[in-house]
Every structure is written in structure tokens, then in C-alpha cells.
Amino acid sequence: MIEHLELFFKSIFIDNMVFAVFLGMCSYLAVSKKVSTAVGLGAAVIFVLGVTVPLNWLLDQYLLKDGALVWLGPEYADYNLSFLSFILFIATIATMVQLVEIVVEKFSPSLYNSLGIFLPLIAVNCAILGGSLFMQAREIPNLGLALNYGVSSGIGWFLAILAIAAIREKIRYSNVPAPLRGLGITFIITGLMGIGFQSFGGMLTGDNEPPEEPTATTTVAKEEKEIKKELEDKEKTVSYNEVINK
């Protein structure tokens, strides 16, 4: 239970699709002019991620992983088909999107009208393929967690596009410098929102921080850690000051 909760919050806030890894930026920028369309696209992304991530998890587990074919018999144990994962994942996604479109059109025309036009857009949304690839890279252990990961990353993306659409609706009344209007200011706002979301970074680490990984982290990553530590130290001193004042 606790691991589900942890993954849920982590995928929404800390590893937010838009602010931490920049996935699905194209549709994020193109479809965020109005809140209502943003909500439609966001809902479609949650739905498709929730379907494709578990499906691709099954594919990865029983077809692609190193030794995944062992259920066919012991002689298949040393097959590693993971180089095929890109093509299989994208085929699954394209097929699922098409299938969902047909099913929704048949059974719920009203939902189709609000959501349907976004579905073809989604087949080539990086957030969807990214969800599956990150699921594979992070080695999510079971189907339940994979479903959780898909849905919660979708919710994170939904929140991001909802927020930027609301800001863009309001910013029309502001006096933005002419060359920055439209795309430019959207980039900068997203950057600022991203900085805000960075502050969720320490949320789940708490006291029992795992020992630093001995793997070859690049200098960049190291410096990032140092900066984070500095920031944490600063926060600590601030809270001490408050205590002293009290």
C-alpha cells in the first residue's frame, strides 16, 4: 500500500511528465490556449496512459526482457529481445489509440465529441511512449504498480496542462513585450512553474535517505545534488531562526 502511495505522489509531483522530463511538450504548448480543450486532452492522456503502460508492462515482462521467453521452455531462457521494445511499444500505442477511438465512438458519442478529436494526436504524444519507456527503464516490479504509474503520470500531465491553460487565458490581459508574446512567454512561465515543482523534490526522501549510489554519476548530477543539499541546509537554518525567534 505504502509503495503505491509513494509512486502515486512521486509520479504526479516529483517526476512530473512536463516539468521534470519535458514529455508531451508539443501538445502541451499547442493545445493549452483554452482551459476546456486542455481538460479534454488531459483526460485523454490519463486514459491512454492508464491503458498502454500496463499493456506494455506485460509485453516487456513476457516477451522482451532478458530471459522473458522462459515460459516457452528452458531452451528460450537466454533470448533477449529488448532491442525490439521501441517498435512494439509504439505499435501497441498506435493500435490501442485506434481501438479506443472506435470503441468510444460506438458506445459514447458525447464522450467522443469532447475527447475524440484528441485521440489521433495522442498516438504521437511523447508523454505516452515516454511513460512506457520510463516504466521499462525504472523496472517497475508488478502490474498494479505499472497501472498506478500510468495513471498517476497522466494526472501529473493533466495538472500541468490545466495550470498553463488557465495562466494563458489570464495573461492575454497583460502587457507582455511583443517579441515574447505567445510561445516565448509560455516557455518562460513553464520554466518558472518547473522551478516551483522542483521544491517537491525533498518531499518523499525524509530521514531514511538511501545511501548514495556508487554508480558513475556524471559531474552534472553530482553538482545538482550539492545544490540540493545547500538548499536543504538553508531551509534548515531558516526553521532554526524561526524557532529562536519564538
Binding site: 517579441p179 505567445g182 516565448g184 512553474m193
Partner: peptide
């Protein structure tokens, strides 16, 4: 250190767009 964290990329691209559109004003969006 700010330049290393992900959001900095967005701001750098925003500034590139700003510079480009200031130099070629026909690109400015309505």
C-alpha cells in the same frame, strides 16, 4: 547551478525566441 536543473532549459529557449523575434519582427504573434 540554476542552469543545470531542467526548468532552465525552458527559460533559455524562451530567451532565444525573444531574441529571434526582436530581430525579425514579422514573426511576432498576434
Amino acid at each position: 547551478g540554476f542552469m543545470i536543473i531542467p526548468p532552465a532549459a525552458l527559460i533559455v529557449v524562451g530567451i532565444i525566441i525573444w531574441v529571434q523575434r526582436s530581430r525579425n519582427r514579422s514573426l511576432i504573434e498576434e
